[in-house]
Amino acid sequence: MKQNSYDDPGFFTKYSQMPRSTGGLDAAGEWSVFRAMLPELKDKKVLDLGCGYGWHSRYVREHDASYVVGVDLSEKMLERARSMTRDEKIKYQRSAIEDIDYAEGEFDLVISSLALHYVGDFESICRKVYHCLASGGTFVYSVEHPVYTALPEQDWVYSEMGEKLHWPVDRYHEEGPRNARFLDHDVVKYHRSIATQVNALITSGFRIREMSELKPEDYQIEQDPEWKDASRRPIFLLIAADK
């Protein structure tokens, strides 16, 4: 199932108002960890899957990547990315992530930020990414954490007074689509366990280099009290794997 909620005018309007949409990478809580997982970027050929506004594509070019291909299914997202980009070495292509088909060894780095939990066949993506990476290349991606995606409600259990009691985890090993609400719209997210993701990468030929479940630092909680919730249950899973 190839989703394109972002071309819905109402959905896109709400997404455009999110802090990470207006503030860029520095407003994305997982960015510091994602950035630390990236290899040396100088002269790297980069593929950005689910590029959105192109924040990551522009970042790697600003740090001397040789060129970038940003892929997204949403024309509205690509329009915004193109309007924010003044760099002939960044090319944006409209395509579903599931449909990528690049030459063997075409890229040195493949990145994907919070997009792959919208893709049903994760193993296929891993094989395609491995194929298009050069020897020694790296795949760095972030997704919503499986603890977060296990139940479609993606919400706390509350007391009668509205206090957050605990985060429920159920149906963890029942992998597959979840009909969730995001920005007041129905979207389909795909729940898969950590083991399923790691094994798909290994089976495709990757060597896992680093993983993070993003425990917030004290300074982050001080700057934004909502990050305190992330110390009670993980929101993001980030993995770096090498070919």
Rank of each mutant, 00 (worst) to 15 (best):
V140P: 00
M1Q: 10
S57R: 13
V69G: 03
G162P: 02
N199L: 02
P168D: 15
E163G: 05
D101G: 06
Q223P: 00
P168R: 10
L41K: 14
Y102K: 15
Q17R: 14
W227Q: 00
K164C: 09
D43W: 06
E174A: 08
R82Y: 00
P177V: 00
R181C: 11
K14T: 10
Y102C: 09
C126Y: 15
K14V: 14
E217Q: 14
I194P: 08
V140T: 01
R82T: 13
D87C: 03
E160K: 07
A27L: 03
S74N: 04
E213Q: 12
R35H: 07
E30M: 10
L116E: 07
D64Y: 04
S32Q: 12
F139D: 01
E104Y: 08
W55Y: 06
H185R: 06
V129Q: 11
S204M: 08
S135E: 03
S135N: 08
V110Y: 14
R232L: 01
E88H: 01
V198N: 07
Y53E: 13
T149G: 12
R20W: 08
F139Q: 02
C132Y: 06
L237C: 14
K76Q: 13
L41A: 12
V60A: 14
H117T: 11
L165E: 10
E79N: 04
A195N: 05
D48I: 07
E217H: 02
G52H: 14
R35E: 09
I194E: 10
W55K: 00
L133V: 04
D224H: 00
L114P: 02
E30Y: 13
D218W: 06
G24M: 08
G105C: 11
C51M: 02
P177H: 04
G120R: 15
E98F: 09
G10I: 10
D43M: 06
D170G: 06
A195P: 00
L73T: 08
C126I: 13
H131P: 12
T85E: 14
A134K: 15
E217F: 00
L47A: 12
D101V: 01
I90Q: 12
K91W: 15
L41W: 13
G10Y: 13
S112L: 06
R20C: 01
A180D: 05
E106H: 02
M1W: 09
A81L: 01
R192C: 01
G70Q: 03
Y15A: 10
T149D: 11
S21N: 10
R61S: 05
